[in-house]
């Protein structure tokens, strides 16, 4: 009888600027939206380096 192994699903956070998943090895950053403070914004290292804009889907604040 074959053993049924439990499967684990891991969801990576998505970068708010480029919409790519941020892997744990990548040095991304997360912070609450500076304007509304109710949505957690994630930014990947590349977008931080390039200064790519991010938009809060809750209040529409555009940064950096």
């Amino acid at each position: 009888m074959s053993e049924i192994r439990p499967t684990i699903t891991v969801e990576f956070p998505i970068c708010n600027s480029c919409r790519k998943p941020i892997t744990p090895k990548e040095r991304g950053v997360s912070f609450l939206c500076p304007n509304c403070g109710s949505y957690t914004i994630w930014r990947c290292k590349t977008c931080r380096k390039q200064g790519t804009k991010y938009v809060c889907p809750n209040c529409g604040f555009t940064g950096p």
Partner: peptide
């Protein structure tokens, strides 16, 4: 701050580099 993944707020002039700055 980039390596440690810490949010960064910075005072920037018109010619300041904005690399890794999360709020200008």
């Amino acid at each position: 701050a980039a390596l440690a993944g810490i949010p960064l707020i910075a005072f920037c002039d018109s010619n300041s580099p904005i690399d890794y700055v999360d709020l200008i």
